[in-house]
Amino acid sequence: MTKILVSFLIGLLFGTGIVISGMANPAKILNFFDIAGTWDPSLAFVMGGALVVTAIGYRLVLARKHPLLAEGFSLPTRRDLDARLLGGAAVFGIGWGIAGFCPGGGIPALGLGRSEPIIFFVAMLAGMLAVKLLETMRSRTASAT
């Protein structure tokens, strides 16, 4: 129960940061990337602020033996660069450039009571589930042969 309450409050803080920073606002996101047009460099300050705090905070936190409410830190261990990672990132960027929402920006926007974030979110889920379905089919074919 503590974990759930703590997670809710951290999610609230994260969402508040997203909304204040402008990451939930597609017009601002798209203008950041429109250097040749109506450029708005604000997003660089969001990334800068987030990265400075995270880089320092992670150092302090990861120096501890374990997190406060869990037995260990769950950190990615892979180091190799593969086509799947880079291809996926490339496709994500194309989608972000078309819709103007990324997952972290779109979810707090769901709480604004507008239809666009809901349309984006449902479409994003469909994309995620399509990949899951494809991978399940692939692993079944692989195990059948």
Binding site: L85, F92, G95, A99, F101, M124, G127
Partner: peptide, 16 residues
Amino acid sequence: LVIGGVLVGIGVSFGN
């Protein structure tokens, strides 16, 4: 929003 959303969903799944 629909096309972009689907691409975001596919992209983040492959790109982790």
